[in-house]
Amino acid sequence: MRQKYHEEEKYYEEEKEIDLLDLVFMVIRRWKVIVLMIIPTAVFGFFFAMTRPSVYQADTTLIVSSGMQSVGLESSDIALNQKLVVTYSEIAKSRDILTRVISKYDLIESPAALGKRISVRPVKDTELIKLTYSCNDPKLAEAVTNELANEFIKKVGQVMKVRNVSVVEKAIEPKSSLPKGRGKILLVSIILGGMLGAGVALLIEFLHKKVRKSSDMEKILGVQMLGMIPEIEIANKGEESHES
C-alpha cells in the first residue's frame, strides 16, 4: 500500500515537472507573439509616462489643541487630539469649504474633484496635522492650500464653538514637481505586455492542439506506450543507387 502511494506521488511530481516544461517550451515556441504584444504596450506606457503633466504639492502645518493648559503632553491628551484630528479632517473636506475655495479662485472642478486633491493627515504622536493640496500650477497650489487652512479654521470655530486650531507653518510655493514615476510606468507596461502575450500564446496553444510528445498520445489512447520509432531520413534515388 505504501509503495503504491509513493509511486502515485512520484507520478504526480513527474506530471508537474512535465507541465512546467511544456509551459517553458510554449513560451519559446510563441516568443514572437509575446514580443509583438510587449512592443505596443511598452510604446503606450512610454508615451503615457512622457506626456504626464507635472503635479505640484503644497502643504501647511496646523496645530490642534484640546484646550488643556499643561506643560507636558500626556498620552491621554495625545489620544484626544488624535480623535479631534479625525473629526477635523472631515470638516476640512466639507462641501461648504470646498465651494468657497472654488468660487474664490474660479477653479474649473467640482467640490468632489477638489476633495480628492486634498489630504489631511496627523503627524504621529503630536498635536499637528498636515493639510496638502496638489495641482498643475505651483502658485495656485500655494494659494489654495493657505485658503483651505483659513477656511478650515473659520469652519471649526463656527461648528465646534472653539478656536483651538491655528497655523504653525504656512504653505509656500513648491519649487519642484512630484516624481512622475516614469521608470515604474514603463516597467509595469512591459510586464503587462508580457502577461498579455503569454495569455494570447496560451489561447493559441489551446486552439491549435498538436501531439508533441509521447505522454500526449498516452492520454489520447489511454494505453501505455511501448516504444518510439525514430525519424529516418530517406535519401534521394540517385544517392541511394550510388551507395548501393
Rank of each mutant, 00 (worst) to 15 (best):
K4S: 04
F44V: 10
K184L: 12
F152Q: 01
V101G: 04
Y56I: 05
T51M: 14
R30C: 13
I129D: 00
I172D: 04
S166I: 08
M160F: 09
G157F: 03
K93Q: 01
V35G: 11
R182G: 03
T87W: 11
W31I: 07
K213T: 06
G238C: 10
Y12H: 12
I185F: 07
K180R: 09
V86N: 03
G199H: 05
I63A: 03
P138D: 09
I97F: 05
R117Y: 08
K175R: 11
F206P: 00
K139T: 08
E147R: 04
D216K: 13
V188Q: 09
S119Y: 04
P174R: 07
E169C: 05
L221P: 01
D106T: 14
E8S: 11
D137K: 14
I191N: 00
L221K: 03
K219I: 07
N236L: 09
S65R: 01
V200T: 02
S244R: 15
L36H: 06
P230L: 09
L80M: 10
E9F: 12
E239C: 01
E239H: 06
N81G: 00
L21D: 10
M225Q: 09
K10W: 15
K104G: 01
E142W: 12
G199Q: 10
V144P: 02
L192G: 04
T60H: 03
M26R: 08
Q3R: 13
M26S: 12
E7A: 13
S75A: 14
D59S: 14
E7K: 12
D125T: 11
T87Q: 15
K116S: 10
G115P: 00
K130V: 10
L131E: 00
G238S: 11
G45M: 06
A143R: 03
H208F: 09
K175Q: 10
I38T: 04
H242W: 12
E205D: 14
A143W: 01
L148M: 14
V167F: 04
